[in-house]
Amino acid sequence: MARFKKEGGKSVPGINTGSMSDIIFMFLFFFMVITTMREATLLVKIKPPMAGEVQKLEKKSLVSFIYVGPPIRIQYGTETRIQLNDRFATVADIQEFIAREREARDEADRKLLTTSLKVDGIVRMGVVTDIKQELRKIGAFKINYSTRKKVKNLE
């Protein structure tokens, strides 16, 4: 039984923490790859409706977002508002917004610019239709109705 005898006087060696940072960095890169930067601070409440036949938006850099919904903060009222970038806007501002978005892109990419409409489910179609008419006028024909993925029924 002498084998299990404790040898006194020997101190426990310290744990090497040098590789800890490597592990954390790996985490960091993992998250950097799978996530995307938040585009704007939301001023309006958005809970997009569900849909089953959804497609992924490709080329995120070529997407401009229009947010429509009731304001998050109650002092702005409960009426549906449009948000462009970080500010509230009206339907009349959309043409200018799209023009600026185009300016910011490469000449070759401008045709591929998609407008993603992030609209809350309770919004009435009147506002959405007005936005669509504005987009038609300025020639931003590619649009995307942002939706959440519906879990398909097992049949």
Binding site: T35, R136, F141
Partner: peptide, 21 residues
């Protein structure tokens, strides 16, 4: 920092093409 500033949600949606005026 990255966890706070980024979001995982991928953008899904129904793609449509508007008709020209």
């Amino acid at each position: 920092f990255f966890l706070l500033t980024s979001s995982i949600d991928t953008d899904l949606g129904i793609l449509r093409k508007l008709p020209p005026p």
